[in-house]
């Protein structure tokens, strides 16, 4: 019989998916759970956002530099 996965276990898969590919079975279980659980859907989005922080940090640094060079009045 198909046993419904609980939220705690679902967050484990949401996290794992960001580090390593899930198996077919895991993907399916997660998908089914997310389709039915709005809290886990939010959590999944939050994990994804945390996963973006590295790239975003790089962009922040880029922005600091761009701001400076455009503000320096140097037309080059």
């Amino acid at each position: 019989m198909f046993k419904m996965m609980m939220c705690k276990e679902a967050t484990h898969l949401m996290s794992k998916r960001l580090d390593v590919p899930l198996t077919f079975q895991e993907k399916l279980s997660l998908k089914v759970h997310l389709a039915m659980c709005s809290y886990c859907t939010q959590c999944n989005q939050q994990f994804s956002l945390l996963h973006e922080t590295g790239k975003q940090y790089e962009k922040l640094i880029e922005r600091d530099i761009v701001t400076l060079s455009s503000g320096s009045g140097d037309s080059r």
Binding site: M6, K8, Y39, Q42, L49
Partner: peptide
């Protein structure tokens, strides 16, 4: 205990991810 979110801890919407970041 049953593995569902605790009422206090249920995740909420943080708004548009682009804006947040």
């Amino acid at each position: 205990k049953n593995g569902r979110w605790d009422q206090e801890a249920r995740p909420s919407d943080w708004g548009d991810p682009e804006t947040t970041l």
